[in-house]
């Protein structure tokens, strides 16, 4: 039978089932249940839990841990994630498989503690310096908090890339029935790049300072090749009633739930509406959106921010049809009725 679980806790259980070996964090609402829960669980299971002195320290501790080949994670909410960006850029450069969770709250600045989606740009376009990408997953339910909490580790290891789970205060705080449908893992093959002590073998090194002429350019090309592969292989999305739709709502995370209710309601009112929900924000489902963009179709992007993912929707649509936007930020939540009203107004 399904269990009633809070989003933040389901995420932890997913990470634990995936073989999380070390967690480093620092408390901040609305993600504090994650370090709170793991403080107990990790110790019980004889694993590593550190409440670091700061978010910066926690992210760099993750860097150190994953460099040894173990599965490690840090989590925070928006302002804390800003502090972790330096380490994320370094881990991207070092091709390290780390998991970083952002349970987004209202911003900018210290903002407030309500759920928000204002960190899309930061997550997807690179919040740190340099030409890098990280895989970004956007759960929209407690079930997906569990599943993505689990899958993120396999993905990060497969591509040697940091993975961010871009959640929000509402998904993190809400309880919903969840089914723990993944196999618990504990043993992993040795990684041929991991720093595990070089007794009996050639020493290895992980460096992001690449000063010799041409080396850094080569390294960037290697990274770009990997990102291209990820864009080919890992795009995930939910496609709901878009086939015959004349109005397609694009939304991720919490706002996709509101959007889906509105789409259903619009359908009962005789409006041909549909929903396209990216589950991966990088890689973004450009191709499927491009294929849905036809002259008789109108797109509407709904987000809890003032227009971030809408820019990627516009890139995908590439002028083939109109792209409208509906958003609220600062911790405000869009209601179903607002989306329905917008859809109706677009019908013309």
């Amino acid at each position: 039978m399904k269990k009633l679980v809070k989003g933040n806790i389901a995420l932890c259980d997913g990470a634990l089932d995936a073989g999380l070996k070390a967690y480093f964090g620092y408390p901040i609402t609305p993600q504090t249940e994650i370090p709170e829960y793991l403080a107990k669980k990790m110790v019980e299971q004889n694993k590593v839990f550190v409440q670091a002195e700061s978010e910066i320290a926690a992210a760099n501790m993750v860097l150190g841990a994953v460099a040894t080949g173990v599965r490690a994670m840090t989590s925070s909410a928006s302002p804390g994630i800003s502090l972790k960006q330096e380490a994320i850029s370094y881990m991207a450069a070092l091709e390290l498989p780390a998991v970083v969770v952002n349970v987004q709250r209202g911003g900018p600045g210290l903002g407030n503690i309500a759920g928000s989606q204002s960190d899309y740009f930061q997550a997807v376009k690179g919040g740190g310096h340099g030409d890098y990408k990280i895989l970004v997953l956007a759960p929209n339910s407690v079930q997906e908090m569990y599943e993505m909490g689990y899958d993120s580790f396999d993905l990060s290891q497969k591509y040697r890339i940091p993975v961010m789970i871009l959640s929000d205060g509402i998904i993190g705080q809400m309880m919903e029935p969840v089914e723990y449908n993944r196999q618990a893992k504990a043993d992993f093959p040795a990684q041929d790049w991991a720093l595990t002590g070089c007794a009996g073998r050639q020493p290895r090194s992980l460096k992001s300072l690449l000063m010799k002429e041409g080396i850094l350019e080569q390294h960037n090309l290697v990274l770009q090749k990997k990102y291209k592969l990820i864009m080919q292989e890992e795009v995930k999305y939910e496609n709901f009633m878009t086939e015959d739709a004349s109005i397609i709502v694009a939304a991720f995370g919490i706002s996709s739930r509101v959007a889906k209710s509105a789409v259903k309601e619009a359908r009962t009112a005789g409006i041909k509406a549909g929903l396209l929900r990216p589950k991966t924000l990088f890689p973004f489902p450009y191709e499927v959106i491009a294929s849905l963009a036809k002259p008789n179709v109108k797109f509407l992007t709904v987000e809890l921010n003032h227009g971030q993912m809408v820019e990627d929707v516009r890139l995908a649509v590439n002028g083939k049809c109109s792209v409208d936007f509906l958003g609220r930020a600062g911790g405000a939540v869009i209601g179903e009725q607002e989306v329905i009203d917008k859809i109706k107004s677009m019908r013309g």
Partner: peptide
Amino acid sequence: FTTCFPSYG
């Protein structure tokens, strides 16, 4: 189906 969302903070 059910959801439960507490005020928090």
